[in-house]
Design a protein around this nucleic acid. Structure first.
Length: 419
RNA sequence: CGGGGCGUAGUGUAACGGUAGCAUUCAUGCUUUGGGAGCAUGCGGUCCGAGUUCAAAUCUCGGCGCCCCGACCA
């Protein structure tokens, strides 16, 4: 992508109505646009990053047998009334049509997925089964806050699984937990797992996945030596004590963001919809249901919060909108431009995602933009580098600068990409 | 939803009740070219509605919107 064609531009200052670091940087970098409190549009750079996050999630969900679907987000009120959610879920957006018919906007999809599963999972032979989707969710938050960390419309991956027995559910539950940890690791984050209550709708087991950041909304007690942590709302052990899991670390306290959660929903939803399947003996049985969520846009905000420095965003390679930011430092003679154009084509041929800054701007402005946008590797082509016969390659995260030949650079890049 | 703060150009900021100014962005031209350049010219604004007043960005009331703390948070 040539930067002169990029739909967005950067800006020096963030709007004063944004205090959250993630929203300030993402708006300044042109990743997102604020529509209203708690609602953001995703622009080319932001969407590229969000897509990468979704791809990681999709790969890991597929790997454990999840099947992707896309459910309606406009829901008939009847289904919510059938589970009691219409009156009890206070974040549910409710709306009315011209003909006074009532609808809900999806804030979670148990009410939709359960009747669908009921149609197809009619026999024990159809179980276990798990389906997931990635899409928009709507919650009527009394107060949206923290930029894209807690919005009224946001992106979420939600998966639902159906099982014959508690044992089978437990097996899948722990497989999913491991997949979740892989997802967060691949996204560059060090996530911890907490055991927490099931919330308002389930007394059964649940886990929350926490990433330490001041931008979070939860307080946790965690162990530096393992992934154990506990929400202070329910923590039995206190900070300063020994870790009850690994017995090695001394528990510490921190602010954290909940980037994912998994719940044992039991039989609540199948019961509400009279969903049964036939077991081996032809008897009707009620399946056990689990649900598994990851806030995709919140994850993106968390990554910004965790890695950003005073100059701007620092994306981990795996979720960066581009692999390389190629920067041409313009010159009077113009030979650098030809070299940079050629390099840009070479990268494209090699399948490397490049943002090519060929704009006719001064070096300082281009560098500042590059720092703000946060692409992992910066490659500079100028008369100066051409004279040396090398390219200047700067690492956004470490600031380290290397002078490489074109061949060396392509090798470095393909090595990074294959990870 | 309770409490607090704030609404002036795309963005950031000034203006005692009396000519809405500055910076930046944007447009045009010239000069510049390795860390957000310089000069010149130009476009662009008081959230909405009432009220007080000779006169309202400024004071009063109402509405709407935004932010923060709390509560809430599948």
């Amino acid at each position: 992508m040539r930067q002169s064609h990029l739909f967005t531009k950067t800006r020096k200052e963030a709007p004063t109505d944004e205090v959250a670091k993630n929203a300030q940087l993402l708006i300044r970098g042109g990743f997102i646009h604020k529509e209203m409190a708690g609602v953001y549009s995703y622009l080319p750079l932001g969407l590229r990053t969000l897509n990468k996050i979704e791809t990681i999630i999709r790969e890991e969900m597929d790997a454990i047998g999840g099947q992707e679907i896309k459910m309606a987000t406009l829901h008939p009120s009847e289904k919510w009334k059938q589970t009691g959610g219409w009156d009890n879920v206070d974040v549910l957006f409710k709306l009315k049509s011209r003909t006074e018919k009532e609808y809900a906007l999806g804030q979670s999809e148990e009410e939709i997925v359960t009747p669908i599963a009921q149609e197809y999972a009619t026999s024990y032979k159809d179980l276990p089964v798990s389906v997931y989707q990635i899409g928009q969710k709507y919650r009527d938050e009394l107060r949206a806050k923290s930029g894209i960390m807690r919005g009224r419309e946001f992106g979420m991956k939600d998966m639902y699984s159906f099982h014959e027995s508690q044992e089978d559910f437990d097996r899948f539950f722990s497989i999913t937990k491991e997949a979740y940890l892989r997802i967060f690791r691949r996204a560059g984050l060090d996530a911890k797992v907490t055991e927490a209550s099931g919330g308002s709708f389930s007394e059964k087991l649940s886990y929350e996945f926490m990433v330490i950041t001041d931008a979070g909304e939860d307080d946790i007690v965690y162990c530096p030596s393992c992934i154990h942590c506990a929400n202070t709302e329910v923590a039995k052990a206190e900070a300063g004590g020994e870790c009850p899991k690994c017995k090695k670390g001394t528990l510490a306290k921190a602010r954290a963001a909940e980037v994912g959660n998994v719940f044992d929903l039991g039989v609540k939803y199948p019961k509400a919809f009279s969903f049964t399947y036939k077991d081996k003996d032809g008897k009707e049985q009620t399946p056990i249901v689990g649900c598994y969520g990851i806030g995709t846009t919140r994850l993106m905000g968390t990554i910004v919060e965790v890695f950003a420095d005073e100059k701007g965003i620092v994306w981990p390679e795996s979720v960066a909108p581009f692999n390389i930011h190629l920067i041409l430092i313009s010159s009077v003679e113009g030979t650098a431009k030809a070299a940079a154009d050629a390099l840009y084509e070479k990268f494209r041929m090699a399948g490397v995602e490049v943002l090519y800054d060929e704009r006719d701007l001064r070096a300082g402005e281009k560098f500042a933009d590059a720092d703000l946008i946060g692409i992992p590797l910066r490659v500079i082509v100028s008369e100066k580098t051409l004279k040396e016969g090398k390219l200047e390659v700067k690492n956004r995260k470490t600031g380290e600068v290397q002078m490489l030949t074109e061949t060396e650079l392509l090798k470095t890049v393909s090595a990074t990409l294959s990870v």
